[in-house]
Nucleic acid binder design. Sequence first.
DNA 1: TGCCTCAGTTACCTGGAGGTCACCGTGGTC
DNA 2: GACCACGGTGACCTCCAGGTAACTGAGGCA
Lengths: 126, 126
Amino acid sequence: MVANRVSEVLSARDSAACRVREILDRVGDKWSLTVVGELGRGSRRFTELKNVIPGISQRMLTATLRGLERDGLVNRTVHPVVPPRVDYELTPLGLTLLDTAWALMNWALDHIEEVDQARIAYDKAG
Amino acid sequence: MVANRVSEVLSARDSAACRVREILDRVGDKWSLTVVGELGRGSRRFTELKNVIPGISQRMLTATLRGLERDGLVNRTVHPVVPPRVDYELTPLGLTLLDTAWALMNWALDHIEEVDQARIAYDKAG
DNA sequence: TGCCTCAGTTACCTGGAGGTCACCGTGGTC
DNA sequence: GACCACGGTGACCTCCAGGTAACTGAGGCA
């Protein structure tokens, strides 16, 4: 994932921004929070996720789910049937992350328009 | 910044995860939140930021600050003196983002250790 | 016999984030 | 006349996140 890119230098720093970067390293990649958001609605199969998340490739869905599983945010349950059936669901830890993601979402809902306006103004002033 | 990488496809989606991605596209790059965090402590000059943020290059600090300014999160004040003096500070909008970043930070403080443990366990299980 | 589904894995390739380094103008100081 | 601080800008390069496409294996079904 995006991880480790930053941690090198910043691990020494103990500030708020540093802590924020640690989670961004873990879930700030292209698909993690999207997947967590979808799993927030309930348990999902691999192919269900693939179909419901537009644009995600099979490879990236696998990689994202592995990353989330590794971080203890998602449980992977394999049913030994054929064709294979694999269910994914949020762990309790994953649910707490979902809550925090909602805080982010609320900020977005409240302020994204302001940001867009600022962009337009900035670009017009150029 | 990281922006526009995702927006293409996901702009159609109206889910929580999508909204979260919008902000991650804006502030999820390598340095933005670190800079916002530092500016949360008060107004800073360009060189002050460069010195206090370990590892950031001049080019990236400039780019990051421009991005934040463009998004209306940071104010840039140029004092026409020599040598130049430029002050950066959070706008009110930037302050609201800082609050949200703190929510993220608190999640990190509370759960990063769990995540680390999960990683170790996952890697050991292979 | 051959094709289907599901859940991947692997090889290969590309775009762009971000790093390094050199350069700029201005005016004070030595 | 040379060097410094400050706040940049631009050329160049590297690395890797993430995309595409082909392949896998096991059993059901026709």
